[in-house]
Design a protein around this nucleic acid. Structure first.
Lengths: 252, 252
DNA sequence: CGATACGTTGATCCATTTCAAGATTGGTGG
DNA sequence: CCACCAATCTTGAAATGGATCAACGTATCG
């Protein structure tokens, strides 16, 4: 997958409300990226508590939000290309979690002063940015639900199905597989289980024909069955399927 | 506690960035409440999937966000007076969860067309509203963390300490106690455990002198010890203590 | 080719669920 | 005011999912 053969912000809100963005706004957003940076090894882009002067657009690869407590790392969110990873850092100023790259990652940086200008002069685009942070919150809520509701196999299934859908929105999923660069330790950090237990869960699900990992990808032989293990209902992802949202946003 | 001896929106952002609101903005917000409604029995104000034409300001009492899946209810967030409970419903339009009252509850309704006007004419107040939804998201993240990190006693301790702090922000907490109208079943729905297990956990914590429930209140004999059981770090609540946030918001 | 991260396995212990039932409380109508 | 009903809280015993401790295999890469 080439890293630079498409606009750097071309995936923002793709599959969601991107069609609500006017061409002018798309160009403006693209021009707001001041610099890009490529990480080829795990790296903490922003640390919890830091005061950020810029926000990060994920262009390619994966990024996790993590918090380390009592010496143990916990992953509280995962980002895919097109995500405005720490847009909330603009209004919140200091973040309550770390932003860490996973595998090879290309990001673009948007200085906060350019966001200030958008807030002042581009109310429609500003609304779209607000909407983007609300989507994050909706995903948070689903994670809360899955942690309350499911045990290890369901949690893992849910994580995979969610990532597949989000990658599909931005054109990065195959029908029966998608990239999955997280290690088992990282998966366990995101599922709230021990790495050991997650490993056994993976084996059981593999033997059951639900998932299979190989070379940074996950294979999903039977999506419907995996969804049912995950009790997955994708409406929280607010995809384009629900055309109403875009219209509602326009009417704002 | 009288229900109407203070402005209906007087607690919005209190303890957070309310001091960043100009008097004009405070008056404007107050005038945006079209009607109020008092619930004396459990009630679902808005149902998941519904298209809302107004948002709900919680004036007094408690409200939970819940999702029912596989016939089991899960609580994914709890609101205290001053919270703009479903402000995100304005931009998201349809909600991904229910909004249910807990005990006696007084709410105010703000029609969405008045929010549209704010978006157009009041950029500073609009930013504050955005900030309010980002606070919600920060609380979501902490819930994810607590579910990944803690077991039953820690989760319950965390829930209580968080609610105590949020009530304290709006002047509704006593030094060693606060209102706690949730039943044990509801607490278990919010902690991701069985009601039975939560009951045993409550007993153990009571015997240990950590918490005690009586007549809709929770007593906290030793806040520091409870915080340590909860591994509590309140920075995610973005309280006034961090004056920088308000200033950052003004500079936006 | 050795270091280092990653994946795998076994055995034991503990937290939590499940099923089943009883006790307590609060509210309502007679 | 009491009787009764429903919701809430409480307890017991057995089954299970997951954590923990301690290894060992296996990629991968400089």
């Amino acid at each position: 997958m080439a890293l630079t053969d498409y606009p750097r912000t071309g995936r923002f809100m793709q599959g969601r409300v991107r069609q609500a963005m006017r061409q002018r706004e798309q160009d403006l957003l693209e021009s707001m990226v001041e610099t890009t940076e490529l990480f080829t090894a795990p790296n903490t882009i922003i640390r919890r508590g830091e005061v950020a002067q810029r926000s990060t657009m994920l262009i390619d690869g994966f990024i996790a939000r993590s918090i380390t407590r009592d010496g143990k790392r916990h992953i509280i969110g995962i980002h895919v290309p097109g995500d405005f990873v720490d847009l909330h850092g603009f209004a919140l100023k200091r973040l309550d979690h770390d932003i860490v790259t996973v595998g090879h990652t290309l990001v673009g940086y948007v200085p906060h002063e350019r966001l200030v200008a958008v807030m002042r002069n581009e109310p429609h685009l500003a609304r779209l940015l607000w909407f983007a942070t609300l989507l994050d919150a909706a995903i948070h809520r689903e994670w809360i639900l899955k942690l309350e509701q499911l045990n290890a196999d369901g949690r893992l299934a849910h994580l995979i199905v969610e990532l597949w859908h989000r990658l599909d929105f931005v054109g990065l999923a195959e029908p029966l597989s998608c990239a999955m660069p997280l290690t088992q330790v990282e998966l366990s950090d995101a599922c709230g289980t021990t790495a050991i237990h997650l490993n056994r869960t993976v084996r059981a699900m593999r033997e059951d024909g639900l998932i299979d990992f190989s070379r940074g990808r996950v294979m999903i032989p039977d999506m419907e069955r995996l969804k049912s293990v995950a009790r997955f209902d994708g409406s929280y992802l607010y995809g384009d399927g629900d055309l109403f949202i875009g219209k509602a946003l326009d009417a704002m």
